[in-house]
Write a protein that binds this DNA or RNA. Structure first.
Ligand SMILES: [Zn+2]
Ligand SMILES: [Zn+2]
Ligand SMILES: [Zn+2]
Ligand SMILES: [Zn+2]
Ligand SMILES: [Zn+2]
Ligand SMILES: [Zn+2]
Length: 113
DNA sequence: GAGTTTGAAACT
DNA sequence: CAGTTTCAAACTC
């Protein structure tokens, strides 16, 4: 009943890769427009296997995308965008999307954020 | 709503 | 690690 809830529209990933924002956030798809969804609560074996595979590739894949300096000093890994064309001034940029400035961790080009 | 752009995620 | 491809959201019209 919260019409503001974000929904995905994945067509190829079955909502089992980080391409899917629901899966990436650890949320079950609900009200989404995805096709052949396996992130629906009824395929937990597949979902847990996918989480495991992705964690093997990148152990902090499910860590928060934006990490402040305080949490960074506590050892949390900071990411950083690699934008080339958006000048980090559109939501294509995860830093801009999160409302934070780019940092020295970013490898963006012609950054205006 | 359809088509394009973008860069993270995935793959090789 | 670097180069390439895939993907779905952001954006444009
Ligand atoms: Zn999805
Ligand atoms: Zn979803
Ligand atoms: Zn789904
Ligand atoms: Zn950026
Ligand atoms: Zn950035
Ligand atoms: Zn930037």
């Amino acid at each position: 009943s919260d019409s503001r809830k974000k929904v995905c529209s994945c067509k190829k990933s079955r909502c089992l890769k980080l391409y899917c924002e629901c899966f990436a956030a650890g949320e079950i798809c609900s009200g989404c427009k995805c096709v052949d969804c396996a992130n629906d609560g009824d395929h937990e074996d597949m979902r847990l296997q996918a989480v495991d595979t992705i964690k093997q590739r990148n152990n902090n894949a499910f860590a928060p995308k934006i990490v402040d300096e305080i949490q960074q000093d506590k050892g949390m890994h900071a990411r950083g965008c690699r934008c080339k064309k958006s000048h980090c001034l559109k939501k294509y940029c995860e830093c801009y999307q999160a409302g934070v400035q780019c940092t020295d961790k970013c490898k963006c080009e012609e950054c205006q954020n």
